[in-house]
């Protein structure tokens, strides 16, 4: 069990690192494109496609597991006072189980989509250049699978009131 906890934590931290790198890279890329355009009147090829298909998918979806691990998914807190601490704990455990279920459905569906895109070698035309985009489709099943893992691992921690989500 503690092995799973460790795995969930490690992978969450990795995702946070990857996502942060994605933010940094996207910023540098867009700024460089703007600067080159303003000074030399040239554009970095495929900026639009790289930003939307690579950076955005990576930094918006991949860190999902990390967000789950830190319990930063946005939820409505208003009625929380209605339930006692014990009920809330069991409720949260059920929610985590439900979340894992939803994530697993998304894993299967997005995995099928990714395989299909891999098979046809999906690309988009960036001006006159066929820019491959099929690899980005594999980010989704990975993101959802890790989110499912974290949700499942959290359940016993929630029930035993042992959550320690402040690390990183």
């Amino acid at each position: 069990m503690s092995l799973l906890v460790k795995l969930a934590e490690r992978s969450s931290v990795c995702l946070a690192l990857l996502g942060s790198l994605g933010i940094l890279a996207m910023m540098l890329h867009i700024v460089l494109d703007v600067v080159l355009r303003a000074t030399l009147s040239v554009s970095i090829p495929s900026t639009l496609e790289i930003v939307t298909r690579y950076y955005m998918v990576t930094l918006a979806l991949l860190p999902l597991a990390w967000v789950e691990w830190r319990k930063q998914m946005i939820f409505v807190e208003s009625l929380s006072g209605m339930f006692g601490a014990c009920v809330t704990r069991w409720l949260d455990a059920l929610v985590a189980l439900l979340s894992a279920g939803i994530y697993l459905v998304l894993v299967v569906a997005t995995w099928n989509k990714a395989v299909e895109q891999y098979d046809i070698g999906a690309y988009v035309m960036s001006l006159d250049f066929p820019m491959p985009v099929w690899p980005t489709y594999f980010i989704l099943p990975l993101a959802f699978a890790l989110a499912a893992l974290v949700s499942l691992v959290r359940i016993p921690l929630i029930i035993t009131n042992n959550e320690n989500y402040d690390r990183v």
Partner: peptide, 19 residues
Amino acid sequence: LAAKPYDFVAKWTLSAVPM
């Protein structure tokens, strides 16, 4: 619906949010 996560986030205008 499983195509939505990708289709929603892969948008140029949304890249302004993290920035």
